[in-house]
């Protein structure tokens, strides 16, 4: 009974997933940065960054504070004026970035829930903003809240929910959208280790097979490797990519089993030493 329900739920959810525009995206990556440099006046946020993200890929980005990770996301989301891109190009789904791009969902470190809306109202909010019909968005919000484990908390206001639960609502709101590209800026940065682990598993569950492209920023190497198809390592001053490491762990991944996986630990050591080299080189430059 339970299984049937879940598979029904999955099929309804996968129905609402965007059909990845195959032809178009085979030519153009989901996100393409080509020798891009962004400057805010005198401050160079990052320099000469090239990155090609294929459709459906889960790319983790790690790097010390101030190396321009958030700036990359903000530019992709069209939140920054065009002029800050002083060299190179940044394309999103084959086009220049636009504000409010309907193919795109953005999730922040803080849940950014609206305190005057219930969990259900918040889960619906993204779709409401994008003009999804009322009955449809209600149904989808119910589904997604059930999937993130908040079936019994639909009527709760954010202040009554724990931090982890609020981030679950934010996940539901994000995954309710028909967005094929998801930008996540340290979404679990403020959570305790246990909650974080649960939400990582949840994210894998929601993403797996959805065909969505994810650009996931984190300070946590273990998280970057466990979730990503690739880990992009950045270094500061000026912000740049120093390494782009393929994570060849098979999918679907069981995050718990991963903790005992030797390949996972090898990759962890490798990414860690790359990150450290980045620091040392920066030290030499100064």
């Amino acid at each position: 009974m339970r299984h049937k329900r879940e598979s029904e739920m999955l099929s309804t959810v996968s129905k609402v997933q965007p059909q990845a525009p195959q032809a178009e995206s085979a030519a153009a990556g989901a996100v393409t940065l080509d020798q891009a440099t962004i400057r805010f006046g005198e401050v160079t946020a990052f320099q000469d960054v090239s990155l090609d993200i294929r459709p459906g890929e889960f790319v983790s980005v790690v790097g010390p504070s101030g190396c321009g990770k958030t700036t990359i996301l903000n530019y992709i989301a069209g939140l920054l004026p065009r002029e800050v891109l002083s060299e190179g190009s940044i394309d999103v789904l084959g086009e220049a970035p636009t504000t409010g791009n309907p193919h795109l969902g953005y999730m922040l470190a803080r849940d950014s829930l609206l305190p005057w809306r219930t969990a259900l109202g918040n889960a619906e909010f993204g779709m409401e903003a994008r003009g999804v019909a009322k009955a449809e968005r209600r149904a989808r919000a119910h589904e997604l809240l059930a999937r993130v484990g908040l079936k019994d908390f639909e009527k709760s206001y954010p202040k009554m929910l724990s931090h982890g639960m609020r981030q679950r609502v934010a996940l539901a709101r994000t995954f309710c959208l028909d967005a094929e590209l998801l930008l996540m800026d340290e979404p679990y940065g403020a959570l305790d280790a246990q909650t974080k682990f649960q939400l990582e598993e949840l994210l894998m569950d929601l993403w797996q097979g959805s065909g969505r492209t994810v650009l996931f920023i984190t300070h946590d190497l273990a998280e970057a490797i466990a979730l990503g198809d690739r880990v992009v390592v950045m270094a500061p001053r000026p912000g740049r990519i120093i390494s782009d490491i393929e994570i060849d762990l098979p999918r679907p991944r069981n995050l718990r089993a991963l903790q005992r996986d030797t390949r996972y630990h090898e990759l962890y050591r490798h990414v860690w030493s790359t990150l450290e080299e980045g620091f040392e080189n920066t030290g030499e430059q100064q």
């Binding site: 989301a77 069209g78 939140l79 969902g105 953005y106 994008r130």
Partner: peptide, 11 residues
């Protein structure tokens, strides 16, 4: 954060 949210959602 709400401003960022409303911008990215295209309100």
């Amino acid at each position: 954060d709400h401003i960022t949210l409303s911008q990215t959602l295209g309100l």
